[in-house]
Design a protein around this nucleic acid. Structure first.
Length: 569
RNA sequence: GCGCGGUUAGCUCAGUUGGAUAGAGCGUUGGCCUCCGAAGCCAAAGGUCGCAGGUUCGAAUCCUGCACCGCGCACCA
């Protein structure tokens, strides 16, 4: 509908240009949008406002002229008018609106999908939590966001690959293996103390149990020295066992990845050497000493000669180290290599979902990637702000299981995946998020996921009612949809594809849950005000078709978000 | 000190990329079940869109400055 009106105005304007109303050399811009106020029609254009100066007329006068020049279009537009400072409002015919119900029913699960992505390849990297502990709630937000964004992009016609980057190279994974070995000894009855720097969480015991079950007492003879610097086999084991836990956490919140990428492979296969060499070839690498940051107190600062990347020449604040003073690569060097690797895999676009605490990292990676590939804006980073977890308003911080933050698993066990997913997605990534455990399980309007699921369940309840009464579930002629409330509901339905599309293009999944809340509200209002199962076969048949279309859109939207479209509450 | 994010109703948050009288939920007040699920609906009250300038037909939205809150700021990951 929107496209049709767009085309209508476009052709009218160009005809007016031919008639000499506008100078031939100016391009006439305008927008067709949905007015906020219902009284302003289904669509409105600002064509007269924007182009008034080209015609050297007052906006309203130009609007009248455009209106007069618009062709008859009675199947689509019922009436149009000039309003306000010079808007032209369009009112869609009832018959066109009714037709949408059938369109939705015919499209089924494909309603809301589009081809706007044109098959472009997008990689979304998210979670990428270190394999040294279970996922905590903060990871969960990024996880849900990345997952929903991927689904939305897919629905919009992009070809999406979801990837998890495993930081499995560095000292931290040795520490994990060390921690595991200590718990391992404890399993054999030894009394142990957990050394400073090791991971204290209870999950390490789970890992140790897996090792014991596999290898028995095989590792008991390791010396303290060997435990602190465990053999590769044990480090590998620790990482894999930890990743199994993380994958389990992800699964419990309905997330699966297409690909896991190991940082180790970059070290082993020379990817980092290559990336750094490429930068060096472009004369962006030098040996130097960084200045201490201003305004931040650093007691133990000492100048150190390092291999540096000239990030500051490309808009970063300072140059960034590629190698530590002992000559080994920094995490940053590996990350450059990783992103170069992504670029070489031929993606048209890269999206990273990162926690806000990594915000200071964005620029340097973008700068490095641009230096390596020559492509600007290849990498888009979505920063997800912090999650404040509360229970009944009181802050919840500690977890026995992880030793630090509350784990995602604990929260899922307590409230379930649906409330978490929906709640996390109903906030824009840029704002901090409060999540209350008590609220998440409440079955009321406080808890938006129930509100939407309830609307969906209510429709299924009508189906059940049909069965009970022995009435056939048959759609009737839509001509019997007459009420304003019914037209309003159809208008809501018509907006679903636009919302998916704009969520995809803007990278803002929260638009979809907000839309679903509005649709659910429109449905609840209709349902409360009007009976579906009336005696009149015609009216009943039409209304059944209407709510079936509503059901379909609720189903599609919830599924898109990874939230279960429940048929009963 | 610098960078990023935020500031909209008592609270939690949207605001269609610059449009018309700024919205929703909760909370408050008052209504609606002999009838398909009241886990719902209807109505009312509630606003200096952090502050001050600027850009233009038009600003919560864009620009500049300021204030406050969060995150980050040399070898960690």
């Amino acid at each position: 509908m929107q496209e049709a009106i767009n085309a209508l105005i476009q052709s009218t304007l160009s005809r007016m240009t031919d008639d000499g109303l506008f100078p031939a050399d100016v391009t006439l811009s305008f927008k067709v949008e949905r007015p906020r106020e219902k009284e302003h029609g289904d669509f409105a254009t600002n064509a007269a406002l924007v182009n008034a100066r080209h015609a050297r007329m007052k906006p309203r006068d130009l609007a009248e002229k455009i209106l007069a020049a618009l062709p008859e279009h009675q199947t689509l537009v019922d009436r149009w008018e000039v309003a306000g400072p010079g808007f032209i409002n369009f009112f869609i015919t009832k018959s066109r609106l009714r037709g949408l119900v059938t369109e939705i029913q015919d499209a089924g699960e494909t309603y809301g999908r589009s081809t706007i992505g044109a098959g472009k390849r997008v990689q979304v990297e998210f979670v990428s939590a270190n394999p040294t502990g279970p996922m905590h709630v903060g990871h969960g937000r990024g996880a849900v966001l990345g997952d929903a964004l991927s689904s939305i992009l897919t629905a919009a016609g992009f070809e999406v690959e979801k990837e998890y980057y495993i930081n499995d190279a560095g000292a931290q994974v040795k520490v994990l293996a060390h921690s595991l070995l200590i718990r391992y000894r404890a399993l054999f009855g030894e009394s142990v103390t957990i050394p400073e720097g090791c991971y204290p969480g209870d999950y390490v015991i789970e890992l140790a149990e897996v090792l014991k079950a596999r290898d028995g007492d095989r590792w008991l003879s390791l010396s303290a020295q060997e435990m602190a610097d465990p053999p590769d086999e044990l480090v590998e084991f620790s990482i894999n066992a930890m990743m199994d836990i993380i994958k389990g956490d992800l699964k419990s919140i309905r997330i699966e990845f297409d690909h896991f990428f190991s940082e180790q492979t970059l070290h082993k296969e020379g990817g980092i050497d290559q990336a750094v060499q490429t930068l060096a070839d472009r004369e962006l690498v030098y040996e130097g000493v960084l200045e201490p940051p201003k305004g931040k107190k650093l007691d133990d600062w000492e100048p150190r000669p390092q291999t540096l990347f000239r990030a500051s020449e490309h808009g970063d604040q300072v140059d960034r180290p590629l190698k530590k003073s002992d000559g080994s690569y920094t995490y940053f060097a590996a990350d450059i290599a990783y992103h170069l690797n992504k670029a070489q895999r031929g993606f048209d676009r890269l999206i990273n979902v990162w926690g806000a605490d990594h915000g200071g990292y964005v620029k340097r990676v973008q700068v490095a990637l641009e230096a390596l590939t020559g492509k600007k804006d290849l990498l888009d980073v979505k920063l997800v702000q912090m999650v404040n977890l509360t229970r009944g308003g009181e802050p919840v911080k500690m977890s026995k299981r992880s030793g630090t933050f509350v784990t995602l698993r604990e929260v899922i066990d307590e409230v379930g995946a649906d409330p978490i997913r929906f709640w996390f997605l109903t906030r824009s990534a840029g704002s901090q998020l409060d999540f209350d455990l008590q609220l998440a399980v409440s079955k009321s309007n406080d808890n938006p996921v129930f509100y939407v699921q309830y609307a969906h369940a209510r429709i299924h309840s009508v189906w059940r009612q049909l069965k009970e009464r022995g009435i056939a579930k048959k759609w009737g002629s839509l001509d019997f949809l007459e009420l304003d409330a019914e037209m309003d509901l159809i208008r809501m339905l018509s907006q679903y594809p636009e919302n998916v599309e704009s969520a995809a293009l803007s990278g803002e999944p929260h638009r979809v849950p907000f839309y679903l809340l509005e649709l659910a509200a429109a449905f609840h209002a209709y349902y409360n005000g009007h009976r579906i199962l009336v005696d009149d076969d015609d009216v009943r048949g039409a209304r059944l078709a209407l709510i079936d279309a509503v059901r379909q859109v609720l189903y599609n939207g919830l599924t898109l978000l990874g939230v279960e479209p429940r048929e009963e509450m």
